[in-house]
Design a binder for these strands. Structure first.
Lengths: 145, 145
DNA sequence: AAAATAAAAGACAAACATATCTTTTATTTT
DNA sequence: AAAATAAAAGATATGTTTGTCTTTTATTTT
């Protein structure tokens, strides 16, 4: 089990891919995205529909349509993508799954986990979708296989 | 979705509970454990059967039987428990789910994730089951609700 | 030896995550 | 207006995780 759900992994990868491919105002279709990030096309379509409804990605129907990001969407932190798909439990939940775990009523791992969670939180909140485009442009990082 | 699977959460909580309750050579039954950590009894039974087979916990059948830990088992790092249940993907897997992600072929989040994963790895490898007994004894930490 | 106890094992069920396929709606191009 | 395009929506399927119930095996007590 990863840190994110499979759905969320596809979501992040697709958002990176869309940002990378639509930098100059164009759009990219679902088939191309699915191929570009190596994901099941129809499953990804569902995910992008959801992200579109929530305003994380933009979309246009018809010829020359597809998915894209405007400047506002590009500058959203990764945490917005994660939260849209997996909710905020990753930022707040107890490591041992206890519902009432808190500072005053902690589980044995509470404090140790807080440090790790905060580091993840900071990473996701302090980087934007756009931040990862350059290394993709340069071919230094990749989104499939 | 938590960092660990539900199964693994129950496993860790039960191992802490057993360590806490069997410090002086006695044993504790499945009903008492399930109640003590607020988990489904029969589901936990399966988990403990598995942990028993793998030598993480010890068990004895019959009257006055139950689950317990000896000194060796008490001193095992938490990483052994996690690995027995969830495997080692949590220590090695790519944050974006890419099979071939590596140092030389990284995903966009590779380096950032490595830091977080290593912190988790260190936490789990450097603490033992026994390390958490004292705060449980003192009632400072808890394993249910 | 018989009865009682408690884990081990097996079969099954429900819920959720993941994946596939088809139809509909909106938009653009001709 | 008709045809083509592409996302949106709906229905269905598969797989995995989580959870429940029953039977069996091993051990101890009487």
């Amino acid at each position: 089990m990863g840190v994110f759900s499979k759905t969320c992994e596809y979501a992040i990868r697709s958002v990176f891919f869309i940002a990378h491919r639509t930098a100059s105002g164009n759009k990219v279709g679902i088939k191309e995205i699915a191929n570009g990030i190596d994901s099941p096309e129809h499953f990804l379509a569902k995910i992008l529909q959801d992200l579109s409804r929530k305003g994380i990605v933009l979309s246009a129907k018809g010829p020359n349509g597809g998915f894209y990001l405007d400047d506002v969407a590009r500058k959203r932190p990764l945490s917005d993508v994660v939260e849209a798909v997996d909710g905020n439990s990753i930022f707040t939940g107890c490591g041992l799954g206890l519902a009432n775990c808190s500072e005053t009523n902690p589980c044995p791992l509470h404090h140790e986990f807080k440090a790790i969670r905060n580091q993840l939180k900071d990473l996701l909140e302090q980087t934007t979708i756009a931040d990862f485009s350059e290394s993709l442009n340069l071919g230094i990082t990749k989104l499939r296989k």
